[in-house]
Write a protein that binds this DNA or RNA. Structure first.
Length: 890
RNA sequence: GCGCGGGUGGCGAAACUGGUAGACGCAGGGGACUUAAAAUCCCUUGCCGAAAGGCGUGCGGGUUCGAGUCCCGCCCCGCGCACCA
């Protein structure tokens, strides 16, 4: 490893002026292209970012979400990977052994769409995109270890998906059952949710139907309790992500209730789950999903009901669609028996009941559930109040929010007077005694269906034999290799039509058999790539001992849109690998940073007829009034007005993306990185601004010029700290305050925008500073060293050049982050503000160590303060140390 | 619909633990330099007001000596909702 070692540790070197600078010749003009090429070449030649396991050094694994190779890098990637690179470079300067890897989430639907559009195999399109994007990542100067590159569409990667799937199958973690998919009846193919628009197929326009097909599932619900318990312990994760995951897993304690009924002479039970068993005596109906066997049974003799069941099966499977549609129902004519009252309860089919959740049936308590209340009013079902809250008047005319509150049972026979908890306990006990129910923990989380009826994904390693059933592919035959030369046509997976792929021998009996043609969800690929980075190149095993050194990742960075699914699946997958004995960790990511979206202005014209045309902001000129307020916009090409659609996430459909490449070509990678980090804190959405980016470039030019001016003025004497002039002391204090602040912002707060603002303030002070005396020159030199050093994680190329220009022989990347000099931070007097009755009325200057009494006296003596107190009597004086004095007078 | 965030000048934002609202930057205005322009540098810029001062962090209320920050209610915007990645 290229680590110079010791030359600038802690208190020696640059910060005490003992180093005699030897200035390098320096260009007057900042030329980003030359500076960046030189810096990147020197890192490449030194192998600076190759990570090597070293048990004697503390590691730092900085992981950014790997990109889908969609074509070219977009601004979201630049933002994501710049955040990771700043943290990586900062940690390296803290002396950590840093691993920052990169790879490609290379399977997925867009490659199939591109393949159809261009008649090119998805593999070809994908590999071309990877080459382009890799070049772009290198141009941005990220300190990545490319020796560990992982590409998920390569057999050497996905064979381990298959291998682990077989291990899960052996343990029953993976299993087969039916699942619901979107079916396009014209193309006769399964569509992704994304391909269903307003309930219709995106290519055919046909009304989509729900269809039940056999699929493989991973039993994530087995880990629900552990996933929930541990997410609450992840102190390094944002609170909001932990809350979202906990809600998604959705533990609820309640009661499973069985409503007995008789069908075709047989005694059966219809099971529902509820967290409000205390309202059971108010249940006036039960509703089942359209796919429920009872619904199917009833529909056989009832054409109207059959039509309704069919109607329920139309439309997409998306939960957001199901939750927003009109609640509709129809009676089946069947009844079940209320397990406590013995009353006959009608069974309805409800379009809002999900077959995949619980047993596909719910009890209807219109008195105390808002949705059931609306349903009962619509279909004239009885509404019964069985819960009373503090004697509030109940009316079935309109829903009131308190109806759903917990209260005391009424009209519930022997349960009257019991509160929520007592009633649930009593009812559960009575149900249990009758064999009609019991207390139960229910999860919102569902098992993970991984089968996809698509080509460009990892083949599921199963062989179907008429004699032996579903037979796992033996380990020795892995990987099941995906042919890379097919082009899909939109009518189902081309794999399912490829005899040479399908036809095979049964591994068990040797007879002719059929290979499974479904592939795995691409979330499988991304659920463990971070482990493979630590075991790169191992052809014998999925992971090896290097994982123990690097994992868990110290920092994971990626978009907030992955807050639930990807992160939950990765946590689950890690636990499965732990239980198989492959890794020792339970949680893969110690710290998580969820970055916000990158947005830009939206401009369009809406022709009288035809589709809306979107114009890229680069093609548009914004018109402003005298104060700079935007008043309109026009197209540069024809000078005619365009409409403004506000600001939105950069997307192809709205044509408001900015290609980072054009920007880098013009201003350089450092300016792109600087603007991205400066414009907003990482967790907030970031609005692109050409002018703002220009400002970032201007700042780098000013920094360059400041160093150039300083260096041109000749040699600098060693800093003599004993007798600095007040102005020099002030600049030195600011420089060391900035050093402390930037380190805190990078390391603890992760607010790169405020770190950069602090360095900007420092540079402003440096350029204003009168550097005539030798002392002043020495202080300016130290301040420039600090400015360049603290900015280096953000803009590593230009700072590398400036570091040399300031007389330091080694590479900036090998520097150690220095400690601020406590002596420089010392301050004698501070300013306090004085409030009178909460309003700012005066400012006083007091000694740093002044006691409360003297601060109080100084505040009350201030002329402005006295004027505002006037005739009033001082009732109270509050002194907040180091901040303010608050005087209460009346 | 459900879950989770967010809303501060003309704009991006800052204010870290309840303590000076608007640091830093962009855009705007004025000036210097220049034959001119660009670039650069200097000054200025929340709103109202001549000033004193008043008002101001989506809206309405509350707690507090003091609220952008805490509490209650509402409005708007963004992300996710299990087959986009």
């Amino acid at each position: 490893m290229a680590r110079a070692g010791g030359r600038i540790g802690g208190h020696s070197g640059i910060l005490d002026g003992s180093l005699q600078p030897v200035f390098q010749p320096m260009q007057e003009i900042y030329d980003p292209a030359a500076v960046e090429a030189a810096a990147q070449r020197s890192w490449d030649e030194a192998g600076t970012f190759r990570a090597v396991e070293d048990p004697t050094r503390e590691k730092y694994y900085c992981l950014s979400m790997f990109p889908y190779p969609s074509g070219r890098l977009h601004m979201g990637h630049v933002r994501n990977y710049t955040i990771g690179d700043v943290i990586s470079r900062y940690m390296r300067m803290q002396g950590r052994n840093v691993l920052q890897p990169m790879g490609w989430d290379a399977f997925g639907l867009p490659a199939e769409n591109a393949a159809m559009a261009n008649n090119v195999p998805p593999a070809r399109w994908t590999y071309d995109n990877i080459a382009t994007m890799k070049r772009q990542l290198k141009a941005l100067g990220f300190g990545l270890d490319w020796d560990r590159e992982v590409t998920t569409c390569r057999p050497e990667y996905y064979r381990w998906n298959q291998w682990l799937f077989l291990r899960m199958l052996e343990r029953g973690v993976a299993y087969k059952k039916t699942g619901t998919v979107n079916w396009d009846p014209i193309d006769k193919t399964v569509l992704a949710n994304e391909q269903v628009i307003d309930g219709k197929g995106w290519r055919t326009g046909a009304v989509i139907e729900k269809r039940e097909i056999p699929m493989y599932y991973l039993g994530i619900t087995r880990y629900a309790q552990e996933l929930l318990d541990e997410v609450e312990q992840l102190a390094g994760w944002p609170e909001r992500v932990r809350t979202m995951q906990a809600n998604w897993i959705g533990r609820s304690e309640g009661v499973t209730i069985a409503f007995p009924y008789t069908l075709e002479g047989q005694a059966r039970q219809l099971k529902v789950f509820t967290t409000r068993a205390d309202t059971l005596m108010g249940a006036t109906f039960v509703a089942v999903a359209a796919e429920h066997p009872l619904a199917a049974h009833a529909a056989r003799g009832d054409a109207a009901l059959a039509a309704f069941v069919d109607e329920c099966k139309r439309g997409s499977v998306m939960e957001a669609d199901l939750a927003t549609m009109d609640k509709k129902g129809m009676p089946t004519g069947l009844t079940v028996t209320h397990p406590l009252s013995g009353a006959a309860v009608p069974v309805w089919v409800g379009n809002y009941v999900l077959m995949g959740y619980g047993e596909g049936a719910v009890m209807g308590v219109p008195g105390h559930d808002e949705r059931d209340f609306a349903f009962a009013r619509k279909y004239s079902l009885p509404i019964v109040q069985v819960i009373d809250v503090a004697g509030q008047p109940y009316s079935t005319d309109a829903w009131q929010a308190w109806y759903a509150d917990e209260g005391v049972c009424v009209c519930s026979g022997r349960y009257d007077g019991l509160d929520h908890a007592a009633a649930v306990r009593a009812i559960a006990a009575d149900l249990q005694a009758q064999g009609c129910g019991s207390l139960q923990v229910q999860w919102r989380l569902r098992d993970w269906g991984i089968s996809r009826q698509r080509y460009w994904g990892c083949p599921i390693p199963i062989i179907h034999c008429d004699a032996c059933g579903d037979v796992p592919v033996p380990d020795k035959d892995l990987p099941v290799v995906l042919p890379e030369d097919l082009v899909p046509d939109g009518t189902g997976s081309p794999l399912a039509k490829l005899r040479s792929f399908i036809d095979c021998e049964c591994p068990a009996c040797g007879k002719a058999a059929r290979r499974e043609t479904d592939t795995m969800d691409t979330f499988v690929d991304s659920s463990w790539y971070f482990l493979r980075f630590a075991s790169a190149g191992n052809e014998q095993a999925m992971v090896d001992g290097r994982v123990e050194y690097w994992l868990p990742a110290d920092q994971y960075i990626g978009g907030i849109e992955h807050a639930i699914l990807h992160l939950l699946y990765s946590r689950f997958w890690t636990k499965v690998m732990r239980d198989i004995g492959l890794v020792k960790i339970s949680e893969p990511f110690s710290n998580l940073l969820t970055q916000g979206m990158v947005r830009n202005g939206i401009y369009f014209r809406k022709p009288a007829s035809g589709r809306v045309v979107y114009y890229n902001p680069t093609e548009v000129e914004v018109l402003t009034d005298a104060k700079g307020t935007p008043i309109g916009a026009r197209l540069k090409a024809d000078g005619e007005p365009v409409e403004s659609g506000g600001i939105g996430t950069m997307s192809k459909s709205r044509n408001n993306g900015v290609d980072p490449q054009a920007f880098i070509d013009r201003y350089g990678a450092d300016t792109a990185r600087l603007f991205m980090m400066f414009a907003a804190p990482p967790e907030l959405s970031l609005d692109w601004s050409d002018e703002g980016a220009e400002g970032a470039f201007r700042f780098l030019k000013r920094l360059w010029k400041a160093v150039h001016t300083h260096v041109q003025a000749g040699p600098v004497a060693a800093l003599d700290r004993s007798a600095l002039a007040p102005a020099d002391r002030d600049l030195r204090r600011l420089a060391h305050q900035t050093l402390a602040k930037v380190g805190d912002d990078y390391g603890r707060r992760r607010t790169f925008n405020t770190a950069i603002a602090a360095v900007m303030e420092l540079l402003n002070a440096i350029t204003r500073h009168d550097a005539a005396s030798p002392d002043a020159r020495a202080v300016v030199h130290e301040a420039l060293d600090i400015a360049v050093l603290t900015l280096s994680p953000v803009v590593p190329h230009v700072t590398e050049a400036l570091w040399h220009a300031l007389g330091h022989p080694g590479s900036m990347v090998d520097e150690t982050w220095p400690q601020p000099d406590p002596e420089a931070l010392v301050q004698d007097a501070i300013e306090l503000v004085v409030q009178v009755n909460g309003k700012l009325r005066g400012r006083i200057s007091v000694a740093v160590d002044a006691d409360e009494a003297s601060v109080r006296a100084a505040a009350l003596a201030d002329a402005d303060v006295r004027r505002h107190i006037g005739e009033m009597t001082v009732r109270k004086v509050i002194v907040v140390k180091g901040k303010l004095v608050s005087v209460v007078a009346a």
